[in-house]
């Protein structure tokens, strides 16, 4: 915690003739504040956990020794049927591709929307400076609505399929990336923009030729990070709504015993995909922001 926050107030400055006393006094006060905060935090945490434990269907201590029951049951059944696994992998590849496609399309659409919105919401670059707060609030609102809300409502209107998930994730992505993009654009060098303005370039030309080349590496890096997040979100939306590998996982889970080989196969597919995308985007982002290794 930052210590200056608890420094002496104006008018109550310590007596400089007795620095040692004043210093010890400040240390004591700081310790007291720290202690109070700590006690408060511990009280909040413990009462919170107790409350959550109370409202849970199963208790913590009762459930703790069961944590490994389900995974071991699943794994042992899958181990017996390990010969099936490659076949199941192949069966679920289309669903996996759908999940990744949902994330990719949503990231693309959301990213493009975020590009436009972020420039409109950046002070100093905006097309209509008076509307900057409007676009900022729009971004906030897009970020605030959780994907699941939009997805469930859209499933009701559009029927099943991947499109509701794409729209839901794209809207959220637009809001989340828009904020990050606008922070990057704020720090862009204004000189190229001024140069372009002096030769009579239009707003879109100034942005496309003056701002985008500067911010592209950072924007791309954020978009990749978002793609990573969106793959996870798309799997979760599949589990709650429909479409993709999440839905397959839900069906296999609901079937329960007898299909645990499928559960394991889908877990593995999902895990490997996430780790792979994680690693790839990590490496590529590193190259984008720190420059190519010579």
């Amino acid at each position: 915690m930052v210590d200056v926050a608890f420094g002496p107030e104006q008018g109550k400055r310590p007596d400089l003739s007795n620095t040692r006393e004043a210093y010890l006094d400040m240390v004591r006060r700081k310790r007291m504040y720290g202690g109070i905060l700590l006690v408060l935090f511990i009280a909040l945490m413990s009462s919170g956990w107790m409350l959550a434990d109370d409202r849970n269907a199963g208790g913590f201590w009762g459930g703790l020794h069961q944590v490994f029951d389900f995974p071991s049951e699943v794994l042992s059944e899958a181990w017996e049927k390990r010969a099936n696994l490659p076949g199941i992998f192949i069966d679920h590849i289309p669903a996996l591709i759908e999940t990744i496609n949902i994330a990719a399309v949503a990231t693309l659409i959301g990213g493009v929307a975020a590009m436009a919105l972020s420039l409109l919401a950046t002070r100093g670059l905006a097309r209509w400076p008076r509307l900057v707060p409007v676009f900022r609030r729009t971004l906030d609102a897009l970020r605030a609505i959780p994907e699941i809300v939009i997805a469930l409502v859209l499933i009701y209107i559009l029927g099943g399929g991947p499109v509701p998930a794409v729209i839901a994730i794209a809207l959220h992505t637009g809001g989340a990336l828009g904020k990050l993009f606008s922070e990057v654009a704020e720090n862009a060098d204004p000189k190229p923009v001024e140069g372009l303005a002096s030769v009579g370039a239009t707003w879109s030309q100034r942005m496309w030729l003056g701002v985008i080349p500067q911010v592209a590496p950072n924007w791309l890096s954020y978009a990749l990070l978002r793609f990573e997040i969106n793959v996870r979100a798309s799997a979760i939306l599949g589990f709650v709504g429909e479409g993709g590998i999440g839905h397959d996982l839900k069906l296999a889970m609901q079937w329960g015993q007898g299909r645990y080989d499928q559960v394991v196969a889908i877990f593995l597919l999902l895990f490997l995909t996430i780790v792979l995308i994680d690693q790839m985007s990590d490496r590529y982002r590193h190259r984008l922001t720190k420059g190519k290794p010579a």
Partner: peptide, 9 residues
């Protein structure tokens, strides 16, 4: 599966 539905889970 282990703790049942609820906020603690």
């Amino acid at each position: 599966r282990a703790f049942g539905p609820g906020p603690m889970t």
